[in-house]
Structure formats: C-alpha cells, structure tokens
Design a protein around this nucleic acid. Structure first.
Lengths: 209, 209
DNA sequence: CTATTTTCCGCACGAACGTTCGTGCTTGCC
DNA sequence: GGCAAGCACGAACGTTCGTGCGGAAAATAG
C-alpha cells in the first residue's frame, strides 16, 4: 500500500539552507539546481519535495518564520509583559540580526524588499508574516501601557512603527557598509524613544544589561 | 571618420525604463530581453549600448541617482540651510517615495536590499550612493546645528540614522501593505524627534505646510 | 557622388532555469 | 518471499538568460 516515507529531516535541512540562500540572494535568486547541488542531491529529487518553485518558496518562508519565532519571539516571552518585554523583543531582534542567524541578515527584511513590488502568493505570505510581526510589537507595547508602565497617551502602533524602523535600519546599514556600530545606534535610538514614555516607577528597571 | 552617432535620447529612455523595472524587480530581475521587448528594439541593439549586463546595471544606478537628486536633493537646496532644509529634505524624500517616481517605491531601497548580501561592482555603486545620501542628511543636520537651530549636544550622525530609518520604513510599509498612512506616521515621527532639539526661536518656523 | 565608419538588427550559441519523464531501489504489506 | 507503492535519480524537455557574429541601414568625410 504505502511506499517509502519522505525524509522529513532532509526536508528541514533543505529549507534551512534555502532560507540561508534566500536571505542573501532573495527567493528568486534561490535556484533548485544550485540548492540541490550544494546539498549533494539531485535536482529532481529536491523538486519532488515541493512540486514547484513557488511551493519551495512558500515552504522556505514558513521555515524562516519558525526560526524567527524561536530566535526572537520566544526569548521575549520568557519575561513578564511590560516594558521589559518590549525592550527584550527589540534586543532579541537586534541580536538575531547581528549574529547573522541568516547569513544575509534578517530573512524577512530581504524578501519583503524583494516582493513588495509584485503580486502573488509568495508576496502575500511575506506580507502576512511582516504584519504578524508588526502586530506583535504593537500588542506588546499596548500590554505595557495597560500595565501602567507607559504614559496614557502612548500610541502603540506609532511606537511600533518607529522601533521597527530603527531595527531594520540597523540591519540594512550594517550589511551594506559593514558597520557594526549601527546596532548600537539602533539601541540608543530605541532607548531614547522609550525613556520619556516610561512612567516613574519603571523608569530604571526595564533595561537589562 | 565618424559613422552613425549613438542615440543619446534613446539611451536615456532605456535607462529610465530600466530604473522603473529595477525598482520593482531588482537589478537582477532586470533582463535585457524583457527590457528591449518593452521598448520595441532588438536585444542585441540594446546590448550594444552597454556591452554587458553589469554595465547596464551600473548605468541604471547612475541614472537613478540623477533622478533622485532632481527629485529629492534639489528641492531641499532651494531653501536656506537650517532646520527648514532638514525638514524639506525628509519631506521631499517622502513625497518622492509616495508619488511613486519609481513604480516600486524608492529605487535605492530596493536595490540596496537586493545587493547588501553579495560582493561586486554593482553592490559597491549602490553602497556608495547610499552612503552619499546618509552623509548629505547628516551634513544638513550639522549645518542646522552650527547655525544654532539645534541644541548643542545633537549628534548629527545619530539623528540622520533615525530620520532615514523612518523614511525607509514608510516606503516599505506602504508598498508591502499598501497602507498610505505610513507616510503620515513617518512625518509624525520625524517632527516628534526633531521638536525637542530645536532651539527656542526656531521652534515654530521650520515646518512648512 | 563614393567611401568609410559605426550603429542596429536578425540569428545563433552555450549555460542555466523550472519542470517532466522513465527507471531502479527502497520500503511496507500480504 | 513476492508484490506493489513511491521516492530519488539521470536525462531530457522547452524556455530564457547573457553574449557574440555578420550583414544591412545610415550618417559623415572627402
């Protein structure tokens, strides 16, 4: 009845490598022949895992999202809601970018810039992931506000927009001019932006080392 | 001695269209066959203008830089140095992005993200253009400071980093989620960032309509 | 006018692309 | 042990990529 099962471990390895390549060359620059060559398996063998290039691209986006969650989101969830979590979310992102978890910097920054101009399912997946991230940051800020750790008038969406802007700028500058100081710039910008919004009794405690 | 002259007007038209395509699909997504087809001339005819794809890419970057200067830099130079010029520089950039002077948003944002991961002459050209822009913004801020319109401790490079971060984030968000409000977000962020730095007698005058 | 020079086109090349096909080989079921 | 299911492979498909070549059209020089 049933023949050989698909090697799920190999599939993970393929997608990990695919995400690495895409973070450098984009999801269009990712080629089935090149990827299979690097991994030492046949072109059609790898192709069989996905059935089409578009499906490979979509699977790569999902795999990268998983890594992103592990690397950025989960560390931040290890501390209680509030300003501390907001800061840790930003700092985890900067560390994730700076450590080059993907060799081309943040995977989603690269592919978002690549697909923002065209239509299609891949673009939709990337846009959805990006929106999830923006909402998570905004929600985390809003939680801190409702806990009384941010002054009342704080606009969570606006603040999220600005913090993400700093992070992505650091990613971009550090890659393009390999200027590691960009990450310190971003950290300074984030702290300077948040400091005047913090209510008195939390003013000194939310920043970790 | 001399035969038929190269049609310089055609060359400009080619590069204008090339920049449009590259702003959407990147400089690698730009293909000689596709470009020549759209313009109604032969592949080898277009090829003859540049001699190689890399040269076409470099020429496209130069042409896009010229458009960027006309569209963003020159409007800002029409007002005297100071905070007014800093603001106009930012606002011109946002208008340039928002008006879709290039259909894929800011040309340099797209190609910078595309090439930040790899080596080569095109990457160097893009990085140089990006650096020129960052230096121009920082320099314009520094001029305002030396004119006494910004408080003494202002770090021009840091401020330039932050303002550019806001602009690029607006470009990216508006394209990916076609959310036009991103530009208002950026304007609000820029003004909020600069307001506390302005010295008293210039506090109300630097923002135009 | 002819002669010369350079552009521009049609055509073809080799390489790489995504994709399909047919063939063994590995696996689980009877 | 034999059978059938299905994965991985090599080879080839048609298309598109960037790039070279030869000849026709065109514009200047004499």
């Amino acid at each position: 009845m049933v023949g050989r099962p698909r090697d799920e471990q190999a599939r993970s390895l393929i997608l990990r490598r695919a995400a690495d390549i895409a973070s450098r060359n984009g999801l269009e620059g990712l080629s089935i022949g090149g990827l299979s060559g690097e991994l030492g398996l046949s072109k059609s063998g790898l192709f069989g895992y996905f059935g089409s290039k578009e499906e490979l691209q979509l699977a790569t986006v999902r795999a990268a999202a998983q890594i992103f969650i592990t690397e950025v989101v989960q560390p931040a969830l290890s501390v209680p809601p509030g300003l501390g979590r907001v800061w840790l979310l930003c700092d985890s992102w900067l560390i994730y970018s700076q450590r080059r978890v993907f060799p081309g910097g943040c995977f989603f920054f690269t592919v978002a810039a690549e697909f923002e101009g065209r239509p299609g399912r891949v673009r939709d997946a990337v846009a959805a992931a990006s929106l999830d991230w923006r909402r998570l940051v905004a929600r985390t800020i809003e939680d801190a506000r409702q806990l009384g750790q941010l002054i009342e008038g704080t606009d969570a969406d606006q603040l999220a927009f600005e913090l993400i802007a700093f992070m992505e700028a650091a990613n971009s500058v550090s890659l393009l001019h390999d200027e590691a100081g960009a990450y310190q710039r971003a950290r300074a910008a984030i702290q300077a932006r948040m400091r005047p919004l913090a209510t008195g009794h939390t003013a000194l405690s939310w920043i970790s080392s």
